[in-house]
Design a protein around this nucleic acid. Structure first.
Lengths: 198, 198, 198, 198
DNA sequence: AATGAATGAGAATTCATTCAT
DNA sequence: TATGAATGAATTCTCATTCAT
């Protein structure tokens, strides 16, 4: 089993045209996201995904040529969600607080999945999508950096984003993601790094 | 395979008495650490460990009753190393810089392994060892926090440690762990959070 | 391998729905019964069962979660057959002769399997089924005892049944199970024991 | 592992000459007999025999070229003991009672081993020894038969011996081997069979 | 003679993937 | 299109046996 690395794979085998097909694909991706978060990469099996999705394993492979393609779809969907949440959150209050709240919101939904998705083997299989997300993700951070601390280069955004992720993943692992203290300290961390006190 | 939960596992099956067997055990743990870091938990196979270690699969199982016991040994060895590096690094310069340098040094050796080890399934198998390490690890951070920003409670140490880890893991993933800029920014992050500006 | 004690095991993993899968299960149980009798518990391998059954090892495990579950199914099927033969045989002639003929018939089919099944490790895995069979089995003997030698308690049935089994297993081992002399002497043994009071 | 059938094997590799060697061999056979009875053929491992015997696995193979040779030695020793007990028991009381008491005594010591030894795979490996034992064993039974029921041929001894074995093995399995009722009924069985002419 | 470390074929079991219906 | 039965390579782990010390 395990890490057989097939060709480019990635893409979906068929584009679902009818409503039923779209529902099948959605159910599979949804079940896949849930299971990938719950069980991690090891322990993530296509057979169980199909079962939880309520479709046959044959149907799963009708739309996804292999396991990696399914994971790619899950990643894509998750990244879209992350950016959407970030967008929505960016409209409220001050930049730092909006960022922190947005990140907490994103991870509250599915912190485990997010972490798993970052550590995935062969993130080069879907390199393009992955890099596109990373770029977009950093762009948001850079906006925050620029707003608070003009004239810094990209490295600040990178350091900031990974620091925030580190804190949030750890808090999620400890089950204290909703704690007001974490939110407060994380905001302090961002503001302390970027310039002026709260 | 997947997440089979064996008994207490953990301990070694046999204590190696002769020099030859001690060398075997060391080779296995060494190869295991390398492969676990390289391939992650999925993709980590006992057969490959034995092969890379240059011993037979039978020899591996002579000393480790199962895969988890081997992982426990790897984790134990790695934790010991981390604390040792932290100790050594803590003696130089200012607290913040010593910390940053120490963490970078630790992860330069094996950042991937460190990340994998944190995300491992069933870290409760060796619960005691794991918690002991966590406690000791945070204690070092608290010392730094106290030195720079007296009178804060434990949450600051937790936030700080996870932020630093996040930055370092990310930098390691991008292959820029040795970059002076990263070192500089990470130090700024720590100082910005804990008290005085850069 | 040896005596690994898995969970409840016992039950089948999947119920075969289509005709094809029912045929697969039947072939596996049939091949398993044959091989278990031929080779004994040691030397009984799931891989060979699958091969003899003409199915893949994967198919075997699709229906039986582990080796023990397969053995349970074999046992169940064999016990059903034994009772069925006993029933049929009980209708003919005098009780003693019917019993002897029935037992010989049962063991002619698969004496080795019967012996192996009694000596199996962990017959508590399927404890209920096993005890149910034992109880039913003894009930038949008690009927014979009652018919020939009213007013004796259960121990007579137990002694009688184990004596008959001993003779038949031994005759089977020597390949003389069909011998008329054995049949005659076994009948004499039963009648001699039950016929006249001590 | 398992049922690799080597050549004639059987014989011992070396004849132990010194006292220490003889002690080693005796300890191995003793431990082997115990473990074979306890665990059955499956679950009987040479490594554990050596461990329980308190010798190294290397020493075991110094005297026994393979597993089967060890089992042969165990069988031989057990058969000798059985015949010795039979001899001793044959001197007391009436023939039937002496036989029953002797058989119960033999099996009380190690009923499980006796049963395992009969069901062993490849009893042809040590065919000669096995047949010699069987012949001798039946000769004792024939003596009893002759004493009680002169003028019968060998089949009576065979039926009688296997009936007695069946009862005793079953009683041993149920843990009621010492029960006076079993002894009484077994005696009745023997007398009932042999007592009166056909 | 004894030791025990090392070996590796073989056995149980999983899971990605295919294909007949 | 959907289904689910079937496949078999890959993985974990055991144990009889050898051999250097």
């Amino acid at each position: 089993m395990s890490t057989r690395i097939p060709g480019p794979s990635s893409a979906m085998r068929k584009r679902p045209r009818q409503a039923r097909s779209r529902a099948t694909v959605a159910a599979v991706v949804q079940a896949g996201a849930q299971l990938l978060g719950e069980k991690g990469w090891a322990g993530f099996t296509t057979n169980e995904v199909a079962e939880v999705a309520g479709v046959s394993i044959g149907s799963l492979y009708q739309y996804f040529p292999n396991k990696l393609a399914l994971v790619d779809a899950i990643r894509q969907r998750h990244f879209d969600e992350v950016l959407a949440v970030l967008d929505r959150a960016a409209d409220g209050g001050t930049p730092a607080e909006a960022l922190v709240d947005g990140m907490i919101a994103v991870h509250s939904a599915n912190a485990a999945l997010h972490r798993v998705l970052l550590d995935l083997p062969d993130p080069d299989g879907s390199g393009a999508a992955y890099r596109a997300f990373q770029a977009e993700y950093l762009r948001r951070y850079e906006a925050v950096v620029a707003a608070l601390d003009g004239g810094r280069d990209g490295i600040v955004a990178q350091v900031l984003s990974s620091a925030v992720e580190g804190v949030i993943h750890n808090a999620a692992r400890r089950g204290v993601l909703q704690s007001p203290e974490v939110r407060r300290e994380l905001t302090r961390l961002v503001l302390g790094y970027l310039g002026r006190g709260a």
